[in-house]
């Protein structure tokens, strides 16, 4: 599951080397914390959160296959880069 998010994120950001995914155990599964370079945050969220939503949909499938649950959190350092930037083309 970690590898899935890592693969997708690295494929769509400008700075793949700065992509990190940390797996944290949670009550009923895991939480995946995705962090990217500040400028890339919009690239993993997408317009109206579309990219994040698609990643969560696939993550759900990967989790079901493993008989667990997984939540994706996108860690953003800079408070101004919200869910709306990037991907207007």
């Amino acid at each position: 599951m970690k590898e899935l998010i890592e693969y997708i994120a690295k494929s769509i950001v400008d700075k793949p080397d700065e992509v990190t995914v940390v797996e944290v155990p949670a009550e009923d599964g895991v939480i995946l914390k995705l962090q990217v370079a500040p400028d890339d945050t919009g690239k993993v969220i997408g317009k109206e959160g579309r990219i994040a939503k698609a990643m969560r949909t696939l993550l759900r499938v990967a989790a079901i296959r493993k008989g667990t649950r997984a939540t994706l959190e996108i860690i953003s350092d800079s408070p101004e880069s919200s869910d709306s930037s990037e991907d207007s083309s």
Partner: peptide, 8 residues
């Protein structure tokens, strides 16, 4: 799910 896969 298929749409998300295609989108990504």
């Amino acid at each position: 799910t298929l749409s998300s896969l295609q989108y990504l």
